[in-house]
């Protein structure tokens, strides 16, 4: 589904990704862990198409398309979703209006008819229930005045609405209390199926108690220095990153 080969990227003159390779197949959950500054969020941004980053080498293919050639909205149309680490507040645009526009733009991209108001609201209610979203939030400006937890939950709610093929969760767990984390994780688990895939970027093992990853990768200094199964996450939690760094240096 997603195939990253030797991806290198920089921002201004600073090299951040120094050759990342990663294969994700449908039905898989991958976790990327790593200390601050290792390039985790850069990877997420590059996948979503943020243009501040310059791609200096490598390739990314998604469902047989050259992802790096596509505009951010085209990537979303193809089925990529990024849950932002810092969701943006947009005063004057309600969550409902925003989501309706997004859904219908994606449908247009895929050659589908737009959803009418009734269909859309039905879906909205259904998904809001899964994430225990207060429906009054939907009528408010997008993320404006939302707490950190509400913003993160709103990201996953949007994901539930848009049903992406590949969802990248950029530190969705940070800033969430345990109850909110559980709700978010349950939401992800309900959406998971054999056709879609998840890439979970996190500092902490905690979220992986609720969302079982098939693979765990350690990102350090712009490279994946170790990959393993879910037990790797537990090991990192216990021993920190130093041993992996040491192992990689050998």
């Amino acid at each position: 589904m997603l195939s990253i080969k030797n991806l290198q990227a920089r921002i201004e003159e600073k090299e951040i990704l120094k050759g990342i390779s990663l294969e994700i197949r449908p039905g898989e959950v991958h976790a990327i862990m790593g200390p601050n500054g290792s390039g985790k969020s850069t990877l997420a941004s590059v996948l979503a198409g943020k243009d501040q980053y310059e791609i200096t080498g490598g390739e990314v293919r998604f469902l047989d398309k050259d992802l790096l050639e596509l505009a951010p909205e085209e990537r979303a149309g193809e089925g990529i979703f990024l849950a932002f680490q810092h969701p943006v507040e947009i005063p004057g645009v309600t969550t409902t209006n925003f989501l309706k526009t997004a859904m219908n733009e994606i449908r247009k991209y895929r050659g589908l008819e737009p959803l009418d108001a009734v269909q859309f609201l039905k879906l909205l209610k259904e998904k809001a229930k899964i994430l225990q979203m207060d429906e009054s939030l939907m009528k408010r400006s997008l993320n404006e005045g939302f707490s950190g937890g509400e913003k993160k939950r709103n990201e996953i709610f949007q994901m539930a609405m848009l049903e992406p093929r590949l969802a990248v969760l950029d530190e969705t767990d940070s800033g969430l209390d345990i109850d909110a984390l559980r709700i978010v994780a349950e939401g992800v688990n309900k959406l998971k199926n054999s056709q879609n895939a998840f890439l979970i970027i996190t500092h902490f093992q905690r979220i992986l108690d609720y969302i079982q990853p098939d693979f765990v990768h350690v990102l350090f200094d712009g490279r994946i220095i170790k990959s393993g199964g879910k037990e790797l996450a537990l090991e990192l939690e216990e021993k920190g990153y130093d041993w992996v760094k040491a192992e990689a240096a050998v």
Binding site: A71, V88, I90, S141, L162
Partner: peptide, 22 residues
């Protein structure tokens, strides 16, 4: 905000329109 909207599938033109309207 523009990037956020585009990452949700909203074309640049439509995203600008939404922001102006807001």
């Amino acid at each position: 905000a523009l990037f956020y909207m585009r990452a949700r599938g909203i074309s640049e033109k439509e995203a600008k329109k939404l922001l102006l309207k807001a």
